[in-house]
Protein backbone atom coordinates (compact mmCIF):
# COMPACT_ATOMS: atom_id res chain seq x y z
CA UNK A 1 0.00 0.00 0.00
CA UNK A 2 1.44 3.35 -1.05
CA UNK A 3 1.80 6.18 1.45
CA UNK A 4 -0.35 9.24 0.71
CA UNK A 5 1.18 12.40 2.20
CA UNK A 6 -1.19 14.49 4.34
CA UNK A 7 -0.87 17.44 2.01
CA UNK A 8 -1.14 16.55 -1.65
CA UNK A 9 1.47 18.51 -3.58
CA UNK A 10 1.67 19.42 -7.25
CA UNK A 11 5.21 19.83 -8.61
CA UNK A 12 5.67 21.31 -12.07
CA UNK A 13 8.79 20.74 -14.12
CA UNK A 14 9.34 23.68 -16.43
CA UNK A 15 11.95 24.04 -19.15
CA UNK A 16 13.45 27.21 -20.54
CA UNK A 17 13.63 25.31 -23.85
CA UNK A 18 13.28 21.87 -25.41
CA UNK A 19 15.87 19.26 -24.33
CA UNK A 20 16.90 20.97 -21.09
CA UNK A 21 16.35 17.86 -18.93
CA UNK A 22 12.69 17.88 -17.86
CA UNK A 23 12.21 14.15 -18.43
CA UNK A 24 15.52 13.23 -16.79
CA UNK A 25 14.51 15.22 -13.71
CA UNK A 26 11.03 13.66 -13.71
CA UNK A 27 12.48 10.13 -13.93
CA UNK A 28 14.81 10.88 -11.04
CA UNK A 29 11.91 12.11 -8.84
CA UNK A 30 9.71 9.15 -9.79
CA UNK A 31 12.48 6.75 -8.86
CA UNK A 32 12.89 8.35 -5.46
CA UNK A 33 9.12 8.45 -4.83
CA UNK A 34 9.00 4.72 -5.61
CA UNK A 35 11.87 4.07 -3.20
CA UNK A 36 9.96 5.94 -0.48
CA UNK A 37 6.73 4.13 -1.41
CA UNK A 38 4.88 7.42 -1.91
CA UNK A 39 1.78 7.42 -4.12
CA UNK A 40 2.42 9.52 -7.22
CA UNK A 41 0.34 11.11 -9.93
CA UNK A 42 1.82 12.05 -13.30
CA UNK A 43 0.61 14.17 -16.14
CA UNK A 44 2.08 16.66 -18.58
CA UNK A 45 1.14 19.79 -20.45
CA UNK A 46 2.42 18.56 -23.81
CA UNK A 47 3.83 15.33 -25.21
CA UNK A 48 6.71 13.47 -23.64
CA UNK A 49 8.22 10.04 -23.29
CA UNK A 50 8.69 9.39 -27.01
CA UNK A 51 11.83 7.65 -28.26
CA UNK A 52 13.10 10.51 -30.41
CA UNK A 53 12.67 14.24 -30.33
CA UNK A 54 9.85 15.38 -32.62
CA UNK A 55 12.05 18.12 -34.14
CA UNK A 56 15.70 17.01 -33.92
CA UNK A 57 14.97 13.25 -34.10
CA UNK A 58 17.74 12.71 -31.50
CA UNK A 59 17.07 9.98 -28.91
CA UNK A 60 15.24 11.17 -25.78
CA UNK A 61 15.00 9.77 -22.26
CA UNK A 62 11.67 7.98 -21.76
CA UNK A 63 9.36 8.15 -18.74
CA UNK A 64 9.70 5.14 -16.43
CA UNK A 65 6.61 4.50 -14.34
CA UNK A 66 6.12 2.19 -11.38
CA UNK A 67 3.04 0.08 -10.47
CA UNK A 68 0.11 1.96 -8.86
CA UNK A 69 1.17 5.36 -10.24
CA UNK A 70 -1.90 7.34 -11.31
CA UNK A 71 -1.30 8.79 -14.75
CA UNK A 72 -3.33 11.18 -16.90
CA UNK A 73 -2.48 10.77 -20.57
CA UNK A 74 -4.12 10.75 -24.00
CA UNK A 75 -5.65 7.56 -25.32
CA UNK A 76 -3.36 7.15 -28.35
CA UNK A 77 -0.27 7.31 -26.12
CA UNK A 78 -1.24 3.99 -24.55
CA UNK A 79 -0.68 2.20 -27.88
CA UNK A 80 3.01 3.13 -27.88
CA UNK A 81 3.68 2.73 -24.15
CA UNK A 82 5.07 -0.48 -22.69
CA UNK A 83 3.61 -0.12 -19.17
CA UNK A 84 0.18 -1.79 -18.98
CA UNK A 85 -2.47 0.37 -17.31
CA UNK A 86 -6.08 0.13 -16.17
CA UNK A 87 -8.39 2.96 -17.16
CA UNK A 88 -9.97 4.53 -14.08
CA UNK A 89 -11.80 7.45 -15.65
CA UNK A 90 -12.48 9.02 -19.03
CA UNK A 91 -12.28 12.77 -18.60
CA UNK A 92 -14.10 13.99 -21.73
CA UNK A 93 -11.16 16.35 -22.32
CA UNK A 94 -9.17 15.92 -25.52
CA UNK A 95 -5.71 16.57 -26.95
CA UNK A 96 -4.70 16.02 -30.57
CA UNK A 97 -3.84 12.45 -29.48
CA UNK A 98 -7.29 11.57 -28.18
CA UNK A 99 -9.24 11.68 -24.93
CA UNK A 100 -7.30 12.26 -21.70
CA UNK A 101 -7.69 9.16 -19.50
CA UNK A 102 -6.96 8.76 -15.80
CA UNK A 103 -5.15 5.43 -15.51
CA UNK A 104 -3.45 3.26 -12.92
CA UNK A 105 -0.15 1.62 -13.89
CA UNK A 106 -0.32 -2.16 -13.44
CA UNK A 107 3.29 -3.07 -14.12
CA UNK A 108 6.49 -1.04 -14.40
CA UNK A 109 7.36 0.17 -17.88
CA UNK A 110 7.74 3.12 -20.20
CA UNK A 111 4.90 5.56 -20.69
CA UNK A 112 4.27 8.29 -23.23
CA UNK A 113 2.40 11.21 -21.71
CA UNK A 114 0.24 13.79 -23.47
CA UNK A 115 -1.79 15.69 -20.92
CA UNK A 116 -3.91 18.82 -20.98
CA UNK A 117 -2.45 21.74 -22.90
CA UNK A 118 -4.70 24.34 -21.27
CA UNK A 119 -4.49 25.95 -17.82
CA UNK A 120 -8.12 25.32 -16.93
CA UNK A 121 -8.04 21.71 -18.08
CA UNK A 122 -4.87 21.04 -16.08
CA UNK A 123 -6.70 22.17 -12.93
CA UNK A 124 -9.51 19.68 -13.66
CA UNK A 125 -7.02 16.84 -14.27
CA UNK A 126 -5.06 17.61 -11.08
CA UNK A 127 -8.27 17.43 -9.03
CA UNK A 128 -9.01 14.04 -10.60
CA UNK A 129 -5.52 12.75 -9.79
CA UNK A 130 -5.96 13.88 -6.18
CA UNK A 131 -9.32 12.09 -6.02
CA UNK A 132 -7.51 8.88 -6.94
CA UNK A 133 -5.18 9.38 -3.96
CA UNK A 134 -2.14 10.60 -5.85
CA UNK A 135 -0.21 12.29 -3.06
CA UNK A 136 2.70 13.75 -4.93
CA UNK A 137 1.72 14.88 -8.42
CA UNK A 138 4.29 15.68 -11.08
CA UNK A 139 3.39 17.84 -14.05
CA UNK A 140 5.84 17.34 -16.89
CA UNK A 141 6.44 20.51 -18.86
CA UNK A 142 6.65 20.78 -22.61
CA UNK A 143 9.25 22.77 -24.52
CA UNK A 144 9.29 26.23 -22.96
CA UNK A 145 5.55 26.15 -22.17
CA UNK A 146 4.68 27.57 -18.81
CA UNK A 147 1.18 29.11 -18.69
CA UNK A 148 -0.64 26.06 -17.26
CA UNK A 149 1.95 25.69 -14.44
CA UNK A 150 0.10 28.26 -12.33
CA UNK A 151 -1.77 25.24 -10.99
CA UNK A 152 1.41 23.85 -9.35
CA UNK A 153 2.42 24.30 -5.71
CA UNK A 154 6.10 24.39 -6.57
CA UNK A 155 8.11 24.38 -9.77
CA UNK A 156 11.49 23.14 -10.86
CA UNK A 157 13.15 25.08 -13.65
CA UNK A 158 15.41 23.24 -16.09
CA UNK A 159 17.90 25.12 -18.22
CA UNK A 160 21.06 24.35 -20.13
CA UNK A 161 22.85 24.25 -23.44
CA UNK A 162 19.70 23.65 -25.39
CA UNK A 163 18.39 27.06 -24.33
CA UNK A 164 21.69 28.81 -25.13
CA UNK A 165 25.32 27.84 -25.47
CA UNK A 166 26.30 31.14 -23.80
CA UNK A 167 26.73 30.27 -20.10
CA UNK A 168 26.83 33.93 -19.02
CA UNK A 169 23.50 34.53 -20.76
CA UNK A 170 21.96 31.43 -19.15
CA UNK A 171 23.11 32.66 -15.74
CA UNK A 172 21.68 36.15 -16.15
CA UNK A 173 18.43 34.66 -17.46
CA UNK A 174 18.08 32.31 -14.49
CA UNK A 175 18.85 35.18 -12.14
CA UNK A 176 15.99 37.14 -13.76
CA UNK A 177 13.65 34.15 -13.46
CA UNK A 178 14.51 33.69 -9.83
CA UNK A 179 13.98 37.42 -9.20
CA UNK A 180 10.48 37.23 -10.63
CA UNK A 181 9.69 34.43 -8.14
CA UNK A 182 10.88 36.62 -5.27
CA UNK A 183 8.19 39.27 -5.89
CA UNK A 184 5.56 39.15 -3.10
CA UNK A 185 2.07 37.78 -2.93
CA UNK A 186 -0.51 40.56 -3.07
CA UNK A 187 -1.96 41.23 0.41
CA UNK A 188 -5.39 39.76 0.83
CA UNK A 189 -8.14 42.33 0.29
CA UNK A 190 -5.89 44.90 -1.39
CA UNK A 191 -8.24 45.19 -4.37
CA UNK A 192 -11.18 46.21 -2.20
CA UNK A 193 -9.11 48.24 0.28
CA UNK A 194 -7.61 50.61 -2.32
CA UNK A 195 -9.01 52.38 -5.33
CA UNK A 196 -8.26 49.90 -8.08
CA UNK A 197 -8.93 49.10 -11.69
CA UNK A 198 -9.11 45.64 -13.25
CA UNK A 199 -7.63 45.48 -16.74
CA UNK A 200 -7.64 41.92 -18.11
CA UNK A 201 -5.17 42.45 -20.95
CA UNK A 202 -2.45 44.90 -21.85
CA UNK A 203 -1.03 43.83 -25.19
CA UNK A 204 0.18 46.68 -27.38
CA UNK A 205 1.98 49.79 -26.16
CA UNK A 206 -1.03 51.77 -27.31
CA UNK A 207 -3.23 49.87 -24.85
CA UNK A 208 -1.18 51.41 -22.03
CA UNK A 209 -1.55 54.89 -23.59
CA UNK A 210 -5.31 54.39 -23.67
CA UNK A 211 -5.18 53.53 -19.97
CA UNK A 212 -3.30 56.66 -18.91
CA UNK A 213 -6.40 58.83 -18.25
CA UNK A 214 -7.51 56.12 -15.80
CA UNK A 215 -4.25 55.23 -14.04
CA UNK A 216 -2.90 58.78 -13.87
CA UNK A 217 -5.55 60.24 -11.63
CA UNK A 218 -6.07 58.95 -8.14
CA UNK A 219 -6.23 55.18 -8.58
CA UNK A 220 -3.73 53.30 -6.43
CA UNK A 221 -3.89 49.72 -7.70
CA UNK A 222 -3.76 48.30 -11.20
CA UNK A 223 -4.84 44.67 -11.43
CA UNK A 224 -3.89 43.02 -14.73
CA UNK A 225 -6.04 39.95 -14.32
CA UNK A 226 -4.87 37.93 -17.35
CA UNK A 227 -1.77 38.99 -19.29
CA UNK A 228 0.60 41.86 -19.96
CA UNK A 229 2.89 41.64 -22.99
CA UNK A 230 6.56 42.67 -22.86
CA UNK A 231 5.82 45.73 -25.06
CA UNK A 232 3.05 46.90 -22.74
CA UNK A 233 5.23 46.34 -19.69
CA UNK A 234 8.01 48.48 -21.16
CA UNK A 235 5.53 51.27 -21.94
CA UNK A 236 4.04 51.06 -18.46
CA UNK A 237 7.45 51.30 -16.79
CA UNK A 238 8.28 54.30 -19.00
CA UNK A 239 5.35 56.31 -17.60
CA UNK A 240 6.94 56.40 -14.21
CA UNK A 241 10.16 57.74 -15.69
CA UNK A 242 8.36 60.40 -17.68
CA UNK A 243 6.05 61.84 -15.04
CA UNK A 244 3.84 61.29 -12.02
CA UNK A 245 1.35 58.44 -12.11
CA UNK A 246 -0.89 57.71 -9.14
CA UNK A 247 -0.76 53.88 -9.34
CA UNK A 248 1.39 52.41 -6.55
CA UNK A 249 0.54 48.71 -6.84
CA UNK A 250 0.55 46.49 -9.88
CA UNK A 251 -0.95 43.07 -9.30
CA UNK A 252 -0.45 40.22 -11.75
CA UNK A 253 -2.09 36.77 -11.70
CA UNK A 254 1.19 34.85 -11.21
CA UNK A 255 4.88 34.95 -12.19
CA UNK A 256 4.22 32.82 -15.28
CA UNK A 257 2.57 35.79 -16.99
CA UNK A 258 6.00 37.44 -16.98
CA UNK A 259 8.02 34.26 -17.48
CA UNK A 260 6.42 33.41 -20.80
CA UNK A 261 8.12 36.41 -22.38
CA UNK A 262 11.00 35.57 -24.68
CA UNK A 263 13.49 37.91 -23.10
CA UNK A 264 13.13 37.42 -19.35
CA UNK A 265 16.12 39.66 -18.64
CA UNK A 266 14.34 42.61 -20.30
CA UNK A 267 11.15 41.80 -18.44
CA UNK A 268 13.06 41.76 -15.18
CA UNK A 269 14.61 45.15 -16.04
CA UNK A 270 11.14 46.62 -16.56
CA UNK A 271 10.08 45.31 -13.14
CA UNK A 272 13.22 46.76 -11.56
CA UNK A 273 12.41 50.09 -13.18
CA UNK A 274 8.93 50.03 -11.64
CA UNK A 275 10.36 49.08 -8.25
CA UNK A 276 12.84 51.96 -8.48
CA UNK A 277 9.83 54.28 -8.57
CA UNK A 278 8.44 52.63 -5.41
CA UNK A 279 5.84 50.61 -7.28
CA UNK A 280 5.01 47.29 -5.71
CA UNK A 281 4.58 44.48 -8.21
CA UNK A 282 2.90 41.44 -6.65
CA UNK A 283 0.97 38.28 -7.61
CA UNK A 284 -2.42 36.80 -6.77
CA UNK A 285 -0.87 33.33 -6.82
CA UNK A 286 2.78 32.39 -6.23
CA UNK A 287 4.12 28.83 -6.46
CA UNK A 288 7.47 28.11 -4.85
CA UNK A 289 10.56 27.98 -7.07
CA UNK A 290 11.95 24.74 -5.65
CA UNK A 291 15.25 24.56 -7.52
CA UNK A 292 16.99 24.85 -10.85
CA UNK A 293 18.62 22.06 -12.84
CA UNK A 294 21.41 22.62 -15.31
CA UNK A 295 21.90 20.34 -18.32
CA UNK A 296 25.01 20.81 -20.48
CA UNK A 297 23.48 18.93 -23.50
CA UNK A 298 22.51 20.73 -26.69
CA UNK A 299 21.63 19.55 -30.21
CA UNK A 300 23.94 21.03 -32.83
CA UNK A 301 22.61 21.42 -36.36
CA UNK A 302 25.11 19.89 -38.77
CA UNK A 303 23.81 20.17 -42.30
CA UNK A 304 20.70 18.05 -42.54
CA UNK A 305 20.81 16.47 -39.09
CA UNK A 306 21.37 17.27 -35.43
CA UNK A 307 24.18 15.82 -33.36
CA UNK A 308 24.48 15.78 -29.54
CA UNK A 309 26.99 18.27 -28.04
CA UNK A 310 27.76 19.37 -24.45
CA UNK A 311 28.74 22.59 -22.66
CA UNK A 312 31.34 22.54 -19.87
CA UNK A 313 29.09 21.14 -17.10
CA UNK A 314 31.23 22.32 -14.19
CA UNK A 315 31.43 25.86 -15.52
CA UNK A 316 27.68 25.93 -16.18
CA UNK A 317 26.84 24.78 -12.64
CA UNK A 318 29.34 27.18 -11.04
CA UNK A 319 28.10 30.27 -12.88
CA UNK A 320 24.44 29.46 -12.24
CA UNK A 321 25.11 28.97 -8.53
CA UNK A 322 26.93 32.28 -8.44
CA UNK A 323 23.92 34.04 -10.04
CA UNK A 324 21.07 32.40 -8.11
CA UNK A 325 20.31 31.89 -4.43
CA UNK A 326 17.91 29.04 -5.29
CA UNK A 327 19.65 25.60 -5.25
CA UNK A 328 21.08 24.57 -8.63
CA UNK A 329 21.73 20.90 -9.44
CA UNK A 330 23.00 18.80 -12.29
CA UNK A 331 20.29 16.11 -12.15
CA UNK A 332 22.52 13.31 -13.35
CA UNK A 333 25.16 14.02 -10.72
CA UNK A 334 22.84 14.58 -7.73
CA UNK A 335 21.41 12.11 -5.23
CA UNK A 336 17.72 11.56 -6.08
CA UNK A 337 16.80 11.92 -2.39
CA UNK A 338 18.28 15.41 -2.34
CA UNK A 339 16.33 16.41 -5.45
CA UNK A 340 13.13 14.94 -3.99
CA UNK A 341 13.49 16.70 -0.61
CA UNK A 342 14.17 20.02 -2.33
CA UNK A 343 10.73 19.94 -4.00
CA UNK A 344 8.88 20.68 -0.76
Amino acid sequence: MKKVPQRKTVIGIVGTAKNTGKTTTLNCLLKEAARRNISVGITGIGYDGEEADTVTLLPKPRINVQPDSIVATSERCLDISTAPVEILHRTGLYTSLGEILITRVLRAGLLVIAGPGKKEELRIILEKLKQYEAGCIFVDGSLNRIAPMSAADSVIFTTGGSRSTDIALLSSEMHAIESLFILPLAPAGILSATESVDVPLLLEAGDVDDLLPVIGHGLKTLFISKYISPAALVRLSDYYTNGPVSIQNIILPDPFVLLMNENIVHTHKSILKLQKHSITVSYRCLPKLAYITANPFFPEYTGNTYSPQFLNGTELLMQLRRSCSTPVFNTQETEPSLLFNACF
Binding site: T54, K119, L143, N144, Y227, P253
Partner: peptide, 16 residues
Protein backbone atom coordinates in the same frame (compact mmCIF):
# COMPACT_ATOMS: atom_id res chain seq x y z
CA UNK B 1 10.10 27.75 -34.14
CA UNK B 2 8.69 25.14 -31.75
CA UNK B 3 9.55 27.43 -28.81
CA UNK B 4 8.04 30.41 -30.62
CA UNK B 5 4.80 28.50 -31.21
CA UNK B 6 4.73 27.19 -27.62
CA UNK B 7 5.09 30.74 -26.34
CA UNK B 8 2.25 31.87 -28.60
CA UNK B 9 0.04 29.10 -27.19
CA UNK B 10 0.99 30.17 -23.66
CA UNK B 11 0.08 33.78 -24.41
CA UNK B 12 -3.31 32.76 -25.81
CA UNK B 13 -3.86 30.60 -22.71
CA UNK B 14 -2.85 33.39 -20.34
CA UNK B 15 -5.09 35.83 -22.20
CA UNK B 16 -8.04 33.53 -21.53
Amino acid sequence: IAELLARFVDQLDAAG
